[in-house]
């Protein structure tokens, strides 16, 4: 039986395909662990009460708020953050011909102006990723409902919705099931 412990615990998990270890106090939020301990600052902290969605990542393949999980809860889990969407993406600036490595969602966000300040974008991408894996052919209303999990203050969502529609098509074509 586990002993009461406010002190650090060792956790081991896989993040974006790589095994990572860390020493964390039990109260440390998963998003803070990702950002501060693993240096993965792509997942953003916007509200810490599960409304804004900027911290959304994939936990064992499913989108979840990393501000509403403790790092210790991710012990043994497989996580994917925005940094894992396109690990082969080239370094900025995007030069012509060198962006082929973006994930179709990222490419579509770029094409359709699906971001302005970019702060919600990682959470938006991970939420859209989960949306398309659970519903590969969503209607516009379904996309809007799915994306309502993440707040964006810049775009009015229009470019984002168009991007997700376009990415859905690309992903379907890629799988050859259109």
């Amino acid at each position: 039986m586990s002993e009461p412990n406010e002190r650090s615990q060792t956790i081991t998990l896989r993040v974006n395909g790589t095994e990572r270890r860390g020493q964390v106090e039990p109260r440390k939020l998963l998003v803070d662990f990702l950002r501060e301990d693993l240096g993965l600052t792509g997942s953003h902290v916007g509200c810490e009460h599960g409304i804004c969605g900027a911290c959304t990542i994939l936990v064992n393949g499913e989108a979840a708020r990393s501000c509403l999980m403790l790092a210790v809860q991710a012990n043994g889990a497989e996580l994917m953050t925005v940094e894992g969407l396109a690990p082969q993406a080239g370094e900025p600036p995007a030069l012509p011909g060198k962006t082929g490595q973006l994930h179709p969602l990222q490419a579509a966000f770029w094409e359709h102006h699906g971001l302005q300040c970019g702060f919600c974008t990682p959470g938006m991408l991970m939420t859209a990723y989960d949306l398309l894996q659970t519903n590969p052919m969503p209607s516009e209303a379904e996309i809007r409902a799915g994306l309502s999990a993440v707040l964006c203050r810049c775009t009015g969502y229009q470019g984002i919705v168009e991007a997700v529609q376009a990415a859905a098509e690309t992903l379907r074509a890629r799988r050859g099931d259109r």
Binding site: M1, P4, N5, E6, Q9, R27, L29, E48, L70, V72
Partner: peptide, 21 residues
């Protein structure tokens, strides 16, 4: 804000959880 400190237990069986409770 960040959570206050607490002891943390992650039991794997219901009996264990009930004993902690």
């Amino acid at each position: 804000m960040k959570p206050p400190p607490f002891a943390y237990h992650a039991p794997t069986h219901l009996d264990e959880a009930l004993a902690l409770l």
